[in-house]
Amino acid sequence: MFDFIFFVFSFVCIGSALFVAFTPNVVHAALGLASTFATLAGFYVLLGADFLAITQIAIYVGGILVLMLFGIMYTHTIARVSGEQVMMQVGPALLVVILTLFTLVATILSTAWPVKEVAPPAPTADRIGVLLMTDYLLPFEVAAILLLVALVGAVVIAQTPVRKSIEESVD
């Protein structure tokens, strides 16, 4: 049953990723990306990482994707996107793809992949909570500093182009 669910998730995930790569419509691509992100959350659940799955849904589907959609909506020429995709760096891209494929296949073939029956994993959120408050207290507070930097930095950097764009739209 788990194998079946895993393959359904894989099929949807890879299918949506291909759709993102090949559709000429950027808004459709963003929706395909939502599907990819959501099925990745399914993989996390299958691996027993329930908190990570919720995080994936909340941050990637609920936050980052909305940010990307906003980015698309702000594009001036969104209504005049041409239907073709031009490949510019065919040679270098091919080289990178072949090298990546070789690395992946070599790793897959050379790894033993031991399969073991394990008990269904317990919910992880409370253990994460205890670890954040004890062993990882300092990284937890450092994460707050990181978020502070993001909060101030992102807004300060985005502020200038946003103001410029507002002034242009008024002129």
């Binding site: 908190f51 609920g62 959120a125 909570g129």
Partner: peptide
């Protein structure tokens, strides 16, 4: 385009809320 700044701030506070849950 003002929504963009709000969205950036929202994203940071969403991460904060997720760290609040555990």
């Amino acid at each position: 385009i003002r929504y963009y700044l709000v969205c950036l701030v929202f994203l940071v506070f969403e991460v904060e809320i997720l760290l609040l849950f555990p």
